[in-house]
């Protein structure tokens, strides 16, 4: 597989480590979340047949975490974003 890194261009997937569903960005605040919210965040994932947003880490590269939109049926990659930008767009800050 090839991942088109937004900063570095096309790179072989072997340089990356995959973490899984990009919903992991949406971590609830531990001080306000209910245990159930935290449980759902931790354990519940959609098992998508089709477009799937997932986290990849460029470990053998610039250490960027990326959100890769990949079709799980064809492996076609339609979008690659910096996870930091995605997190900010979701309102995450500090």
């Amino acid at each position: 597989m090839i991942i088109d890194h937004p900063l570095l261009g096309p790179r072989d997937a072997a340089e990356f480590v995959v973490k899984g569903d990009a919903s992991l960005i949406g971590r609830p605040d531990g001080m306000t979340a209910s245990p159930e919210d935290m449980h759902d965040y931790m354990y519940l994932r959609d098992n998508t047949a089709g477009e799937h947003r997932e986290l990849w880490y460029h470990e053998q590269g610039d250490r960027s975490w990326l959100v890769v939109t990949r079709n799980t049926l064809t492996h076609e990659v339609t979008k690659v974003e910096l996870a930091r930008d995605v997190a900010r767009a979701q309102g995450r800050s500090r």
């Binding site: 971590r27 975490w65 996870a83 997190a87 995450r92």
Partner: peptide, 9 residues
């Protein structure tokens, strides 16, 4: 991951 994805700022 924590730095870039959870608290990016």
């Amino acid at each position: 991951f924590v730095r870039q994805c959870l608290w990016p700022d």
